[in-house]
Design a protein around this nucleic acid. Structure first.
Lengths: 194, 194
DNA sequence: CGCTCATTTCTAAGCGCTCGCTTATGATGC
DNA sequence: GCATCATAAGCGAGCGCTTAGAAATGAGCG
């Protein structure tokens, strides 16, 4: 998980991790390049050979995060499963991912306002694919009659919200295990549509 | 709605509204006092007679928002209703509030990291009361047998997430009417626990 | 292996600008 | 005529980012 991306230096990876922690804690606008550097005991100028600007660093993080969650969901999505089981597995994975990567997820979900218009468009295209994974499952469940929920669109929206919001509060006093949380949310998701 | 608070000047109200819009758009850290002033065509110094610092402005907004949503939910909560109906009405109101006040809600949900430790504690105390409104309903529904959901705590968490997350995406291409959204989410909430 | 040399990545210094906030002072209204 | 609220001006600090040059790195070759 969060494996070093091919063709990038270890320093770039460390810079991204430090930026994720700071963006998640005090926001993109609340973080200075000097603060990120300080977490790594390096000078602020040292990150410029790796990322040409603070915005490009945010973009790299946003790409990493959005691709990560989409890949994770597609990896567990199995169209041969019964609709309910299929939904349970995917929501389980989605919620678990948000919990396991809650700092990265916070940046992914709440700090996109720092992106340029063009970068923002690239990112939202990936987001639509993520939603589409859920939408396809719900549509098929409704068509087959296994899901009885009326408004499929609203259900997809609600399922997304359920999972996305995890990164806002995780971990809490009562919930610190991403696996346990994933299972619970998978169950709740099925209850909501069946 | 968003009525002027008693004992405060109209200018203070206008400053708060401008700050809400900016905090929601680019975050607390991404907003400067000069930006807020510019929205009102006044000098940055003009807000200091009303709010002693940028943090105190955020705190005033956070208080307004948290008290608002708590009051709204308590106003519609009716313990005499059947458990399902009671939950539906409260979730309807919660989701609708997040949609109607989505800018204020964004600040309330995502920008609290800008608060001092002490102010943060005051705010989280109000948050707990809000969650408790939902928790009470779910607990009673489970106790009476009307709700069949197993883990009541997880359900409360999920219901909160459902509503809170509305402010992140509202309005969207498909959803621009808070009333319609509230009804849909009220139904989904009942499906989830019954 | 040891050596050279080009490339990459680091640091210290600092540029022009903006930050949150204060001060001194003029306008407004009970 | 006194308190309130606005302004312009500006303080010290920190901002994103660039530069100059030193140190580290890796490839090619004896």
């Amino acid at each position: 998980m969060a494996a070093t991306r091919t063709g990038e230096s270890a320093a770039a990876e460390r810079i991204r991790q430090a930026a994720i922690a700071s963006f998640a804690e005090v926001g993109y606008g609340g973080t200075s390049t000097r603060q990120i550097a300080k977490r790594l005991n390096m000078s602020a100028a040292a990150m410029y050979p790796h990322y040409r600007s603070k915005e490009e660093l945010l973009y790299a993080i946003a790409l990493e995060g959005h691709r990560g969650v989409l890949a994770a969901m597609r990896a567990v999505d199995d169209a041969d499963l019964p609709d309910s089981e299929r939904l349970r597995v995917v929501v389980d994975e989605f919620a678990r991912w948000q919990a396991e990567h809650h700092e990265l997820a916070k940046v992914v979900q709440y700090e996109l306002h720092g992106l340029t218009r063009e970068h923002y468009r690239t990112i939202t295209a990936i987001r639509r694919e993520t939603t589409e994974v859920l939408a396809e499952i719900v549509r098929r469940g409704v068509a087959s009659g296994e899901f009885t929920v009326g408004a499929a669109d609203d259900a997809v929206l609600a399922l997304s919200s359920l999972c996305v919001d995890v990164c806002r509060w995780f971990p809490s006093r009562t919930h610190r295990d991403p696996v346990v949380l994933g299972r619970a949310y998978g169950d709740l998701a099925v209850r909501m549509v069946r």
